[in-house]
Nucleic acid binder design. Structure first.
Length: 529
RNA sequence: GGGUCCGUAGCUCAGUGGAUAGAGCACCAGGCUUCGAACCUGGCGGUCGCACGUUCGAAUCGUGCCGGGCCCGCCA
């Protein structure tokens, strides 16, 4: 795939190699914040100085002579302690624009990688109630990470793991029965309205066996969860049940595998996994003294399943309240003989709503469905990944409900609709153009816009590497701003064919870029609003 | 006590070692006779929690403090 900035980077790297005799440090190629520092700048001369034992400015001067002759580079200037500031020429802008349009929706997409398969397991909420706002963040974030990795060429499998065995599930069944009978749910049960709703709707007699209630209840709850996720545009390739792991003997097999690896021991009547040998702060019980398996035993079997199925990397998306699981899961993999580095746990911080923490016991539960009803899927997804996953997220419901221009999602979508509108008008008037204009020299706002567009491959790559979809959102917002300014200052459907061709090409490229970016975060890019 | 995330403008937050630290909101002042004013332009606003260190250069890396969130079970 074409990448004009990457090409520029490589050309400068070649120049550096010629000067240094092989050594090429990080170029530190970037778009300077300040306009008079050029369109692009590199700090490579300063990085090279200690290596070559020469003054940075002297190195910069020599590099400038070579870099200045590169195609597309109009001017080079040595500045400050040894920065190389370069200004790009009109031919570079036209070529860059043409290259992006040639790639279309694939601009910035990575080549498919062979021999790897990344499993992204996310949401994985137990089917004992509707998805909460916390799961909503998990869904939005995990889905974006999966989309980003796929975009960079990494084969991705998405999986939802659900707990349908054990105490919590039994309590869920008992809660259903109690609700049908008009009673309070048992201690530790599920008092939510959805439980009451399901209890009333299930086609079961009041005195049907509790196992039946549990089975049908879970089925119904899972269907509700799937529907909620579909509305959120979140899909999965695999739905895996914990019960299946027990029934298939996978749990026992995993324990035996760990035992064969020499990491299982008996103590106080229980069976333990020596996770502390691999960085966990304590050992973990697999089989309790009463013979029951722990939840972690199923986790262990699940890790085994992930890798035996062929995953080369297992990503977990968990809330901050599970951060203690990182070492445990990695150690679990190690105890099975897998590389713990292949287990990657992504932790997102908790969500508050209008400053308050949610909790079923607090009686202020806001569900994913509730959020979507209140502000719509686009705004919900945008808000949920707008901030870094490392940052606690507060959703101001009063503001989110307000459908005003304060809502940043409209700002970005509006830019896309504007592009579409211009292209419609151009088509209606029969004034569409081919190419990017043979000799048009871009004016300020045009150049700013094209430079922004050219950042995309690096933005996508970095966001994927850092598992940071909020960078996509931030970039889309900046692009929208550059486009609005461009549109405000310059008339696209100019009489001059050359000018019109360049501007229409910029509009097309912007529309595609916004659609691409918004798609990666699961937000629609409407042609009309 | 240990682990982990956070601390940047009045508020919510960007900023993977670079030059004079940014955006949105709020506030103030402007801008529609052509493509969508759901928009644009300017202004106001900062000890980047504190200290020491690493180096040509630190909001960014290291160490120690201070403050806040979350977690630390033979529960799931």
């Amino acid at each position: 795939m074409a990448d004009p900035i990457s090409d520029l980077h490589d050309a400068i790297a070649d120049a550096v190699r010629g000067l240094s005799g092989g050594e090429v440090p990080d170029l530190g190629l970037e778009r300077p914040a300040q306009a008079d520092h050029g369109d692009y700048a590199t700090s490579v001369a300063m990085r090279l100085a200690p290596v070559l034992s020469r003054p940075p400015r002297e190195i910069a001067e020599e590099l400038a002579a070579v870099v200045g002759a590169l195609p597309g580079v109009e001017a080079v200037e040595v500045a400050g302690p040894g920065f190389l500031n370069l200004r790009l020429g009109a031919d570079w802008y036209r070529a860059a624009l043409a290259a992006m349009l040639a790639d279309g929706a694939d601009f910035g997409r990575g080549a498919p990688q062979a021999g790897v398969e990344t499993l992204v397991e996310f949401v994985s909420a137990n089917p004992t109630g509707d998805l909460t706002i916390g799961s909503a963040r998990n869904a939005a974030y995990g889905d974006c990470v999966a989309r980003l990795l796929a975009f960079t060429g990494e084969p991705v499998v998405r999986e939802y793991y659900f707990n349908d065995a054990g105490n919590q599930i039994a309590l869920f069944g008992a809660s259903l029965v109690a609700r049908r009978r008009g009673e309070d749910v048992p201690e530790g049960g599920y008092p939510g309205p959805e439980v009451e709703e399901i209890a009333a709707a299930l086609p079961l007699a009041d005195d049907a066996p509790v196992e039946e209630w549990t089975r049908l209840g879970i089925e119904t709850m899972m269907a509700r969860i799937r529907a909620s996720l579909e509305r959120m545009r979140v899909s999965f390739d695999l739905w895996t049940s914990e019960q299946t792991l027990h029934a298939s003997g996978a749990v026992g097999a995993a324990i035996e595998r760990a035992r064969a690896e020499g990491h299982v021991f008996e103590q106080d009547g229980a069976t333990w996994l020596r996770t502390s040998a691999f960085g966990d702060d304590k050992d973990r019980v697999l089989l309790k003294a009463d013979g029951e398996t722990t939840y972690f035993a199923a986790d262990l079997a699940y890790i085994d399943l992930k890798f035996t199925r062929g995953a080369t990397r297992a990503i977990y998306v968990l809330g901050a309240d599970h951060h203690g699981y990182i070492q445990r899961l990695k150690a679990g993999a190690a105890c099975l003989g897998y590389d713990p580095e292949a287990v990657e746990v992504l932790i997102y911080q908790l969500v508050t709503v209008s400053g308050e923490r949610m909790g079923k016991r607090r009686g202020n539960v806001i569900t994913l469905d509730g959020l979507v009803e209140a502000i719509g899927v686009d705004a919900a997804r945008y808000f949920l990944v707008q901030r870094s996953h490392d940052q606690t997220l507060d959703i101001d419901l009063d503001l989110a409900v307000e459908e005003s221009s304060k809502n940043p999602v409209y700002y970005v979508q509006y830019a896309h609709a504007r592009c579409a509108s211009i292209l419609r008008k151009a088509a209606d008037e029969g004034r569409l153009t081919e190419g990017v204009g043979a000799a048009h020299v871009p004016e300020g706002p045009e150049a700013v816009l094209v430079r922004r567009l050219a950042e995309w491959p690096d933005i996508a790559r970095t966001a994927a590497e850092l598992r940071a979809p909020h960078r996509i959102v931030a970039w889309a917002h900046e692009l929208a701003g550059d486009f609005h300014a461009f549109h405000h200052d310059l008339y696209v459907l100019h009489e001059d064919d050359d000018v019109r061709a360049f501007r229409l090409a910029a509009v097309r490229a912007t529309a595609e870029a916004l659609a691409r970016a918004l798609d990666l975060v699961g937000v629609a890019a409407p042609d009309r609003m």
